[in-house]
Design a protein around this nucleic acid. Structure first.
Lengths: 114, 114
DNA sequence: ATTGTATATATAAGTTGTTTATATATTACA
DNA sequence: TGTAATATATAAACAACTTATATATACAAT
């Protein structure tokens, strides 16, 4: 987990984007997916993930579906119609933010961070 | 200031990068520069900026040079040799982080956030 | 048998990094 | 005369994390 402090603020957007793309996911699955997509560079902690999921549920951004799998409870999360519009907004913001960051760290001739 | 929560964690890297590129800068100048580079999308608050600068100074990442300009005090901040190696590390982390974020929000066919 | 790893969710306490509010002071323009 | 721009600073409040802890099943290895 190299980018421990960089992740701050982007967790919610990451979760929403994955749910939008995969229809429905359970918490553990979300952490696996993020690790997979980032080659292990981003590892979500459950202490951060579950409170975020619960908060999004209380805000009406997503709903849950409990299911039993191999004697373990799985709680699937899926976006509400309102959730879909939230994702759209969040992805736009993040895209803009990434663009801004890139403009700032864009290396001028004479500097190298390789 | 659209990306209020996204900025969390990246402020330090932004400051270090600007100092590395511009030799030395004073606090107010840093906020102007960030606004300029991001078309006003990222506005640093002084309540966040100055504590970060003071902390970096106490850590030996940067040193200060006080000067008087038009009867106003300007405190220039510049990187120490140790500071330069910190920048290198931070930029690498941020570059990796941005890459990870992009892989996550990379839109698959059928989805659109335009 | 039992230890360890993977699967699965959850919360409380503590820490960190912000925002907001406030303070001070000069210059320049209307 | 007051408002915007320039310039730094700190305290209080808040939000978002990490760390620690708890619980429980399945499966593989020793």
């Amino acid at each position: 987990m190299i980018q421990s402090d960089l992740i701050k603020g982007s967790l919610k957007t990451i979760v929403l984007k994955l749910l939008d793309e995969n229809g429905r996911m359970y918490g553990y699955e979300i952490t696996r997916k993020v690790e997979e997509l980032t080659d292990g560079k981003i590892k979500l902690t459950y202490g951060a993930l579950y409170p975020v999921l619960h908060k999004l549920e209380s805000e009406g951004v997503l709903v849950t579906e409990s299911e039993n799998f191999n004697n373990r409870t799985r709680i699937y999360y899926l976006l509400t119609p309102h959730g879909h519009s939230v994702v759209t907004e969040k992805i736009k913001e993040m895209t803009e933010f990434i663009g801004s960051l890139q403009r700032i760290i864009d290396t001028k001739p004479g500097l190298s961070y390789a």
